[in-house]
Design a binder for these strands. Structure first.
Lengths: 209, 209
DNA sequence: ATAAAAACTTACTATTTGGTCAGCAAATAT
DNA sequence: ATATTTGCTGACCAAATAGTAAGTTTTTAT
């Protein structure tokens, strides 16, 4: 009972911070930034309020940390589009990754969505630099394929918006979708159904089917 | 200088209430429900705070009124799908209406989106009854067309989700889209471009082009 | 002109909330 | 063993906020 297989120090810190960020994410989604109170985060994390403020100087810092998690998720989950794949496989992979991200981390998607809806106060910089760059790069790739006659002449930027919106919808509007479909939760099949539906529709839309 | 062409009574009331609801919509979008204070709504409406609470008993009532406006908009703007139109024209009209709604009343779309993201506390009933009914009805219509061989066999419910998500995206993610496209505001052309893009893509996706 | 109703305002209050602080407890290093 | 760092906590406070109460002014009806 001496040695534990986990790391030695900074462990409590890491665990507590993780617990807090999980609780905070949920609270921010359910109540919004202002509506989520430090106390409510503490209650959900099952820690005293003062303990929350011991690990994070203030509420805004918690929110920043949550946002960073979200962006990291986005970045990792989306992967990169491989030019060698060609348009069909590239779009297939892109949709697949995005749908799975939405179903696996709906809270991240929701927090991101709320932030953008409210004017992207904390993400202006991210959008202006990273995101704009990303879109331009990928759009150029699609444009090459279009010029090569490998796919129909559709606006690449709007194509990216279409894929983003249609995939994220299943995370952000989860509640509405489940209500309409009269389900309590998503099932494993749903992910595959959505991937197939969106892939088929969009590939045909691009003249790739 | 005696008679004014406007209605006689209840005019001040109507005007003030309208001013308040406009201001409140903006505040709710920018700050969320909890973040929007009665004072901030008052400031934006250029009325004293107590005047706001004279017309609306409390903050929640303001929010309810804003939500009702939003739902009314949705209902009117979307119109109805005419079975006589056939799938092609029906989808064209549907997309057209939805995109114009998004560009003309982005705030309504945003408030609706935030409400759903946060769990649809105030819209559960609306979704369970009206919306579910609406989707089933329209889905049945599409299914008829599919069974008749008038369009490809795509899941009608997911098709509706696709149209909703892709069109609303231009309202809800306005900030992000404008940043990426490096524009300050949408222009008239943008609406037409989006309508054409989405109509083309989705019609092709349904085998209607 | 006058009465009644609607519109508006000022001052106040109870509660909530983010954040601090001073001290205690446990873990870790020497 | 002892010192030091890290983790933890209860009590407290100033500011913000939703809502009220009690009045005044303006508009409308008669």
């Amino acid at each position: 009972m001496t040695t534990s297989p986990t790391k030695k120090t900074g462990n409590i810190r890491a665990q507590s911070q993780h617990k807090i960020l999980m609780a905070a994410s949920t609270e921010f989604v359910l109540q919004g930034y202002k509506g989520a109170t430090v106390q409510s985060i503490a209650d959900r994390a099952e820690l005293p309020k003062a303990n929350i403020l011991y690990y994070f100087k203030n509420k805004e810092n918690i929110y920043h940390a949550v946002l960073e998690n979200t962006l990291e998720m986005w970045d990792k989950g989306i992967g990169d589009i491989d030019p060698a794949d060609g348009p069909k496989v590239a779009i297939e992979k892109f949709i697949d990754a995005k749908v799975r991200l939405s179903f696996n981390y709906p809270e991240s998607s929701k927090i991101y969505a709320m932030e953008i809806i409210q004017g992207a106060q904390h993400l202006k910089e991210f959008a202006r630099t990273y995101l704009r760059q990303w879109v331009r790069e990928k759009a150029k790739l699609f444009q090459h394929w279009i010029d090569n006659g490998e796919m129909l002449d559709v606006d690449p930027v709007h194509l990216i918006f279409l894929i983003w919106s249609s995939t994220q919808h299943y995370a952000d509007f989860e509640t509405q979708i489940l209500t309409i479909m009269n389900q309590a939760d998503y099932e494993d099949d749903d992910v595959e159904t959505v991937i197939k539906f969106l892939t088929d529709m969009i590939l045909r839309g691009c003249g790739l089917k």
